[in-house]
Design a protein around this nucleic acid. Structure first.
Length: 307
RNA sequence: GCCGAGGUGACGGAGUGGUCAAUCGUAACAGACUGUAAAUCUGUCGCCCGUUCGGGCUACAUAGGUUCGAAUCCUAUCCUCGGCA
């Protein structure tokens, strides 16, 4: 018997919409006391970041959802916070006989729920990071090799060239691993539903969606946040849409270019999300281009939970 | 019409006789990922063979020419942009 539903897939495939439908379906089920919607999204955690980040407030209506609007735009939020909050929400759901439905596109966040990431307890050391960031890649590699040759040797070509990863590695070694977190369940305990879409169609949809968000006041939202730009969380500053509109507001690029770049960033994001999720062989994929895909999803849900 | 600048791979833009299938950036494609993950990083990127290595073909507006050798020099044509008419 599965213990939860995870709805994954690239942006703009209608994950929230499907989650809500399943939520409503389970609401009327005689064997479950309902479900709990939990978001796995690294940007929608921020308050005041609504339109550009694509919170589906309109389709959610009054339906409660966890992990949305949990921090201020100037706060930081990390995978550690996600793991903590999500596990709490899942436990609570289980205690009240409700089914946890985690929906989102941040693959890394999902993975954190299945593995004991020992280094997660090691907080970022701002001073150390600042200090190390000034060093060149070569210097950092040398430094890491000096304190932990094995770690350096274990890093792949991609990571060895990634300053950020080397700095984190050094940080971890300096502070030492303290405690480990055990996962709340295994991948096999989860019914994975993956939504996908033809790449070109997805690109078109992303473009339209960006245009809609502009019509719905994305620029005003960006302006409001831009006032406190220096204090904003780096995560928000670099998030799709925000990054480009901030760039426009600071006069670096014109509006049209900002829009174009936003669309491109979203498409690239979708591609990277697919790269991430493709590795997970537990996912049951559904093409949202198929007319009857929802029926198939419901059939699978029913079968998996006997509701 | 005259004067000036220029036409390079999907795009931007280097290169100004040989080491050029052509630096670099973007886009695209594939991938990595253990506290920034919508982040950060890696690989590929004219076509065809062949394993790394290599080999062949077609290419720097078009057509000729000079030269052992041209994206680079010369001539003509077409086109673009700026200035003057």
């Amino acid at each position: 018997m599965k213990k939860a539903i995870f709805i994954v897939g690239p942006t703009a495939t209608g994950k929230t919409d499907l989650a809500l439908k399943i939520y409503n379906q389970i609401l009327v089920s005689p064997v479950k006391s309902g479900s709990v919607l939990i978001s796995a999204d690294a940007v929608q955690v921020f308050r005041s970041a609504d339109i550009i980040s694509g919170k589906d407030l309109d389709i959610l209506g009054d339906t409660p959802i966890e992990n949305i609007d949990v921090v201020d735009p100037t706060d930081s939020f990390s995978i550690k916070d996600f793991k903590k909050k999500t596990e709490l929400a899942i436990k609570e759901a289980q205690e009240t006989d409700r089914l946890p439905i985690v929906v989102g596109g941040t693959g890394y966040y999902f993975d954190a729920l299945f593995s004991s990431i020992d280094t997660l307890s090691i907080k970022p050391n701002k001073k150390l990071r600042k200090e190390l960031e000034e060093k060149s890649l070569e210097e950092l590699q040398k430094y890491l090799g000096g304190i932990d040759q094995a770690k350096l040797a274990s890093m792949n070509n991609s990571d060895v060239n990634n300053k950020r990863r080397i700095i984190r590695a050094i940080e971890v070694i300096k502070l030492g691993v303290k405690k480990s977190y055990s996962p709340i369940f295994a991948k096999e305990d989860v019914l994975f539903i993956g939504l996908k879409m033809d790449r070109n169609k997805l690109k078109d949809k992303i473009k339209k969606r960006v245009e809609d968000r502009i019509k719905n006041g994305a620029l005003d939202e960006a302006r409001r946040l831009f006032v406190d730009y220096d204090k904003l969380s780096p995560q928000l500053k670099s998030a799709n849409g925000y990054k480009q509109l901030f760039s426009y507001l600071s006069g670096k690029i014109n509006f049209e270019e900002a829009i174009d770049r936003w669309v491109i960033a979203d498409s690239q994001h979708a591609k990277k999300q697919m790269t991430w999720f493709r590795k997970n062989d537990q996912i049951n994929w559904f093409d949202v281009g198929d007319k009857d895909f929802e029926k198939d999803v419901f059939r699978l849900v029913k079968k998996s939970f006997t509701i």
